[in-house]
Simulated scan of single mutants.
Amino acid sequence: MTGLGEPLVLDCGLSLTNRLVKAAMEENLAVAGQLPGERITRLYRRWAHGGAGLLITGHVMVDGRALADPSDVVLEDGTPLEPFVRWADAARSGAGGC
């Protein structure tokens, strides 16, 4: 039997450091403009350094007219990308991030 702490190679060739996965969830942490802010960036950095092999983001809406909650993050045409880059960098900041 394979242990949770053992690496996992996905079919695409990406190797995860272990088999611990943070599932997608609705974080409800958007800031003004429906952008990812410091709170969600800090949260993903904490999860990244907590040792999960894979962090799956959740509930990023692609149309601001279809929000499930006013604090949803929205990524659509014309949205500034820098807040998303900071968020992704935080998620990759743990040991073994790619």
Results as ranks from 00 to 15, higher is better:
residue 38 E to M: 15
residue 90 A to Y: 02
residue 40 I to Q: 06
residue 55 L to R: 08
residue 97 G to Y: 14
residue 70 P to M: 02
residue 86 R to S: 13
residue 37 G to Q: 03
residue 23 A to S: 13
residue 36 P to E: 08
residue 44 Y to W: 10
residue 44 Y to I: 03
residue 87 W to M: 08
residue 1 M to F: 09
residue 54 L to R: 03
residue 3 G to K: 12
residue 87 W to K: 03
residue 54 L to S: 07
residue 85 V to G: 00
residue 31 V to S: 04
residue 75 L to F: 06
residue 87 W to P: 01
residue 98 C to N: 12
residue 20 L to E: 04
residue 15 S to C: 13
residue 60 V to F: 04
residue 68 A to F: 01
residue 20 L to A: 01
residue 40 I to C: 09
residue 72 D to F: 10
residue 74 V to A: 05
residue 19 R to P: 07
residue 69 D to G: 11
residue 91 A to P: 05
residue 51 G to E: 05
residue 17 T to H: 06
residue 39 R to D: 15
residue 86 R to V: 05
residue 77 D to L: 09
residue 76 E to V: 05
residue 74 V to L: 06
residue 42 R to M: 14
residue 55 L to K: 09
residue 63 D to N: 15
residue 98 C to A: 13
residue 71 S to E: 15
residue 32 A to G: 04
residue 70 P to N: 10
residue 70 P to H: 12
residue 74 V to Q: 08
residue 32 A to H: 00
residue 58 G to Y: 11
residue 46 R to N: 01
residue 98 C to H: 14
residue 4 L to D: 14
residue 57 T to L: 12
residue 11 D to I: 14
residue 92 R to C: 08
residue 17 T to W: 01
residue 41 T to N: 12
residue 83 P to C: 08
residue 56 I to R: 10
residue 72 D to L: 08
residue 58 G to R: 08
residue 97 G to E: 05
residue 60 V to G: 01
residue 1 M to I: 09
residue 9 V to Q: 15
residue 55 L to Q: 05
residue 7 P to G: 02
residue 35 L to C: 09
residue 65 R to E: 14
residue 75 L to P: 01
residue 41 T to A: 11
residue 23 A to R: 08
residue 44 Y to Q: 04
residue 9 V to Y: 08
residue 54 L to W: 05
residue 46 R to S: 05
residue 51 G to H: 00
residue 16 L to N: 04
residue 37 G to V: 02
residue 82 E to R: 13
residue 57 T to S: 15
residue 96 G to P: 05
residue 67 L to V: 08
residue 68 A to S: 11
residue 83 P to D: 03
residue 73 V to A: 13
residue 88 A to P: 00
residue 89 D to V: 05
residue 74 V to M: 14
residue 21 V to H: 03
residue 50 G to I: 09
residue 50 G to D: 10
residue 57 T to F: 13
residue 30 A to H: 02
residue 14 L to M: 14
residue 73 V to C: 14
residue 5 G to S: 12
residue 53 G to L: 03
residue 36 P to F: 02
residue 64 G to W: 08
residue 88 A to Q: 04
residue 92 R to Q: 07
residue 13 G to Y: 10
residue 68 A to E: 03
residue 50 G to S: 11
residue 20 L to T: 02
residue 17 T to K: 11
residue 48 A to S: 09
residue 11 D to T: 14
residue 13 G to L: 06
residue 85 V to L: 05
residue 86 R to N: 12
residue 34 Q to R: 04
residue 73 V to I: 15
residue 71 S to Q: 12
residue 52 A to K: 01
residue 49 H to D: 06
residue 64 G to Q: 12
residue 56 I to L: 15
residue 42 R to N: 13
residue 87 W to N: 01
residue 28 N to K: 11
residue 31 V to D: 01
residue 80 P to G: 04
residue 30 A to T: 05
residue 64 G to P: 08
residue 59 H to Q: 12
residue 10 L to P: 07
residue 2 T to Y: 02
residue 89 D to F: 00
residue 49 H to L: 03
residue 3 G to C: 06
residue 84 F to H: 08
residue 94 G to P: 02
residue 77 D to Y: 13
residue 77 D to G: 10
residue 49 H to I: 00
residue 66 A to N: 10
residue 91 A to S: 06
residue 59 H to N: 15
residue 23 A to T: 10
residue 85 V to R: 07
